[in-house]
Design a protein around this nucleic acid. Structure first.
Lengths: 128, 128
DNA sequence: GTAAGCGCTTTCCTTGAGGTAAGTAATGAC
DNA sequence: GTCATTACTTACCTCAAGGAAAGCGCTTAC
């Protein structure tokens, strides 16, 4: 008979591995703009200036850097159409859609958390 | 008859809200050490020095700051036992366990992503 | 008395993310 | 010729996260 102790408490090694995975994931999607760019391109493919207009506040330098980075990580593709003038289209890849669950969970938790913060601010102001 | 267009493509507003939630969530759990501290305390309650020994590389200054921050955000509690010498125990709260799904998804995706990166590095070296 | 342990704080420094603004090569419009 | 547009690049700056190392108040051990 196997006795399961601490079912919900992973051991040290599992935990360290999990942490490593989580930090890897965070490293990739981190930064002020990465997810904004991805979400924007998941909605529809766009050109550089279209992105810059839709993502308010991003500078061309930062956008260019983010796009390079996202292309390297296979989240988006950059296609040059040799029309005149040349047309450059950025598209979200299928791979970027694997983030769906991650984004879903983060969004859900973030919403709950904001509600909680609001609640605790309300109860604090009652105590003033 | 309702025609569902772009079932998997949220509209702009939904998308912006979702992004806001995600960024809120990321803001809270971000940084090099926060999740390490939480995971460490979820395994078992610990004292300051125990934490510093288990989380290799963290400095006392940073650990103190993270602990304060996590306490403010209700992820951990700090309890002072007035024994001699005084005993200070940090514990993970129930609320910190609401991160379970988030951490789970991030860990799962991070692992998949690392596998993918390894694969693509292997196929690159074959092409050299 | 001095050393060591605990739970931090303080000071100083480095690094990197990101912001601002200007520039640039290619093209087309007027 | 000059101006605008597109898709960037370059140079410079700021600011916050985090690292290194020392100190501090307290207590027990030798």
């Amino acid at each position: 008979m196997k006795i399961i102790v601490n079912e919900s408490l992973p051991n040290n090694e599992e935990c360290a591995n999990s942490l490593k995975n989580v930090l890897d994931a965070l490293y990739v999607i981190n930064g002020k703009w990465k997810l904004a760019v991805i979400l924007c391109l998941v909605q529809s493919s766009k050109r550089f200036n279209e992105l810059q207009h839709e993502i308010t506040g991003i500078s061309s330098k930062v956008l260019a850097k983010e796009l390079k980075d996202l292309e390297l990580n296979d989240f988006i593709t950059r296609t040059v159409y040799s029309t005149t003038p040349v047309n450059i289209i950025y598209e979200a890849t299928e791979y970027s859609r694997t983030l769906k669950n991650v984004i879903g969970e983060l969004s859900y938790w973030g919403e709950q958390h904001r509600e909680k913060i609001k609640q605790s601010m309300r109860s604090q102001s009652r105590n003033l």
